[in-house]
């Protein structure tokens, strides 16, 4: 029995859980290779043109492993928080893959995850796996418990300040945890807002975190913050967003605005991302209020790396000039940049 796990979407966030889970069940797993141009092209071939790039990439990953496995694991992520959901594309993902990728029709394992917290270990979600993989209830419970523990350890690494990719490497034993997880000596601190599948897929985000480190910048992301801190910073909103991860990003955004250590915010968003169109506008409006620079970088399947480099460098330069002794103290004295100058 072989189960495939596509290296896309929530892979970066839940892989330690899935891996431990299947290993405990003595099921061999096959993970698709890191994103390449070929995978992206395959993804484009099988998905509708308008859909966002992470979805296209995911489709490509499924296509890569579909012939080599008995099942592909594509959980139907409905919610991981009370009264909140995932983006509709996540909720319809198994249906979408089932009918678009050739050969996927009967090969999809899609337990319906409808949890009220980030933990996805409730055995009642995984009922359908028992018959299809031939496992007992007891085995299922045990494996889920182990998986949850592994996942919590992994989340703890993030909260210590490890970048998600490093945390994954540590989980897999490729790296030893160092004493100083964060890069702390940068001149500038930037909060990056973006979904895990955009930022940590080196192909999609063109390694934006590394680019920033090279520019001597400290990087903060939402998964490094405590859940409670994120929740508190959007407590004032009467009606919150419907999407859990978008709420996390929005909360992190407000947190970054309020945190005096953070000098600026870069939002990394995929072309045509629906939830981000809302977050982007809200944070853009707030940027004036908090007088902190905010920039949106929009990405898609085109690979113009230099444009990203230029924009990020310009943004950092601008912040540096502002911080320099005797430099420009007020933002409005700077030359126009990005989206935030006027509305």
């Amino acid at each position: 029995m072989r189960v495939g796990i596509p290296r896309g979407l929530l892979y970066q966030y839940y892989y330690p859980f899935w891996k431990t889970f299947f290993e405990e069940l003595k099921v061999e797993i096959i993970v698709s290779s890191p994103t390449t141009k070929e995978i992206v092209n395959k993804g484009i071939e099988f998905s509708v043109p308008e859909i966002c790039v992470p979805m296209k990439v995911y489709t490509g990953h499924v296509e890569q492993i579909i012939d080599k496995v008995d099942y592909v694991f594509i959980p139907r992520m409905v919610s991981i928080s009370d009264k909140e959901y995932f983006c509709p594309k996540f909720m319809g993902l198994p249906d979408m893959i089932k009918y678009t990728v050739p050969g996927a029709l009967n090969k999809i394992l899609s337990p319906k995850i409808k949890s009220d917290s980030d933990s996805i270990a409730n055995p009642k979600f995984y009922g359908e796996l028992k018959s299809r993989l031939g496992i007992s209830t007891w085995d299922l419970h045990r494996a889920l418990k182990k998986a949850d523990k592994a996942w919590n350890n992994f989340r703890a690494l993030s909260k210590k300040g490890y970048i998600l990719t490093d945390a994954l490497d540590i989980f897999e034993g490729k790296k030893v945890p160092s004493k100083e997880p964060t890069f702390k000596d940068g001149e500038v601190t930037i909060g990056i807002l973006g979904y895990v599948y955009d930022i940590y897929d080196p192909f999609i985000s063109m390694d934006i975190t590394d680019k920033l480190k090279e520019l001597n910048v400290n990087v903060l992301t939402f998964e490094m913050l405590e859940d409670q801190a994120i929740k508190d910073s959007i407590k004032f909103m009467h009606k919150k967003l419907f999407w859990t991860f978008s709420n996390k990003l929005l909360g992190a955004g407000y947190h970054f605005y309020q945190n005096p250590k953070v000098d600026g915010i870069i939002q990394v968003t995929a072309f045509n991302c629906g939830p981000d169109s809302m977050i982007g506008k809200m944070l853009e409006l707030e940027s004036n209020h908090f007088e902190k620079p905010f920039m949106t970088v929009r990405i898609d399947e085109h690979t113009g790396e230099s444009h990203l480099q230029t924009r990020v460098e310009a943004f950092i330069d601008m912040i540096r000039r502002k911080k320099m002794a005797g430099g420009v103290s007020r933002e409005s004295n700077l030359s126009p940049y990005g989206l935030n100058t006027s509305i």
Partner: peptide, 16 residues
């Protein structure tokens, strides 16, 4: 509407 989240899913399944 262009980029409509739910309808993109239905559009994907339309050929089938």
């Amino acid at each position: 509407p262009f980029g409509c989240l739910p309808e993109l899913v239905s559009q994907s399944i339309m050929p089938k």
